[in-house]
């Protein structure tokens, strides 16, 4: 937790009111985003995203499993976030659990959609190999290495980058198995299927301080917030999920305004992120 004196708090609030924040940014400017992909060789896909001193790693691991009885035509996706105690002394032991579960819930809500899983950011029906028998389970793990504000946006960017880095091995099902037996499969070592990430949304967190709201808040700014709304938006400009933090209430008109601002910001963020991912992939491949 950052402690600030009254004078500093006032200075930060004044800066946001005057559209010039402490590091010279405008209210709707992000810090530079750096993306690296393929940093964990054992994983099917991985990425590291840095925004300022915020440093997060996401990895995607695919395993063959059995689809659930309720949804035989869908694979499973599990998202888990871990806050390393190197990020903040307060995360030591079980201290980071509250934040981890908050972050993973928000990401699940934004990426996986409702129970039926229709139209979600991650298309779970593409993970099925044999309906009702075999599917891919995706384990998406995020690790917060260093925390300097705006964790949720960084994590969503890292997961997006990791998913676009993911190659799922192509599977041949040995024919001839009868319908009630578990079919035998042959996993290829060479052929990989690229995961389709066009529908994966980015998350834009708008932090409301005073009368204005800002994107990409630093911890100092986050300590001054009344409330923060995280809006996940996909490439089409559709909203996939909204999460609100902080106790202060918001007027519905403000929420609507925030949504339209977030949509505008997300376009820039999405383009920036895509070009960063592409250049990271190019570097990784070479």
């Amino acid at each position: 937790m950052v402690g600030l004196s009254l004078g500093e708090q006032h200075f930060i609030q004044g800066g946001i009111a005057q559209d010039l924040r402490c590091d010279g940014r405008k209210r709707l400017t992000y810090r530079p985003i750096y993306v690296e992909t393929g940093i964990i060789p054992q994983a099917n896909g991985s990425a590291r995203v840095r925004i300022g001193a915020t440093d997060v790693i996401a990895s995607v691991k695919a395993e063959l499993g059995k689809p659930s009885f309720m949804q035989p035509d869908k694979g499973k996706v599990l998202i888990h976030i871990d806050c390393s105690s190197t990020a903040e002394p307060a995360f030591e032991g079980r201290g980071g659990e509250e934040l981890s579960s908050e972050l993973s819930t928000a990401l699940q809500r934004c990426l996986l959609g409702a129970k039926s899983g229709a139209g979600a950011g991650i298309d779970r029906s593409s993970l099925v190999v044999v309906e009702g028998k075999i599917c891919w389970d995706l384990y998406i793990d995020g690790l917060v290495v260093s925390s300097d504000g705006n964790l949720l946006d960084a994590l969503s960017a890292a997961i997006k980058a990791a998913l676009s880095n993911t190659g799922i091995p192509s599977v041949k099902v040995t024919a001839g198995a009868s319908s009630d037996e578990q079919p035998e499969v042959d996993i290829s070592d060479e052929e990989f299927l690229q995961f389709d990430t066009s529908g994966v949304p980015v998350i834009v967190t708008l932090t409301k301080i005073g009368r204005h709201y800002i994107v990409d808040a630093t911890p100092e700014e986050e300590s001054q917030m009344n409330s923060a709304v995280s809006i996940s938006i996909n490439r089409k400009g559709h909203i996939c999920g909204i999460t609100k933090r902080g106790g202060a209430g918001l007027d519905p008109s403000v929420v609507l305004d925030m949504v339209s601002v977030a949509k505008y910001v997300s376009e820039q963020l999405m383009n920036k992120l895509d070009s960063e991912i592409a250049s990271a992939e190019a570097e990784d491949g070479s």
Binding site: F11, G15, Q18, L20, C22, G24
Partner: peptide
């Protein structure tokens, strides 16, 4: 503990010109 209204607070904010210089100097240090 200051319990002044928004309007009153806004009057006391640092002038934009000075703030620009403060931020510039701070970024130079960074």
């Amino acid at each position: 503990k200051d319990s002044v209204s928004f309007e009153e607070q806004e009057k006391n904010y640092t002038a934009l010109e000075t703030r620009k210089y403060i931020c510039r100097a701070a970024n130079a240090v960074r």
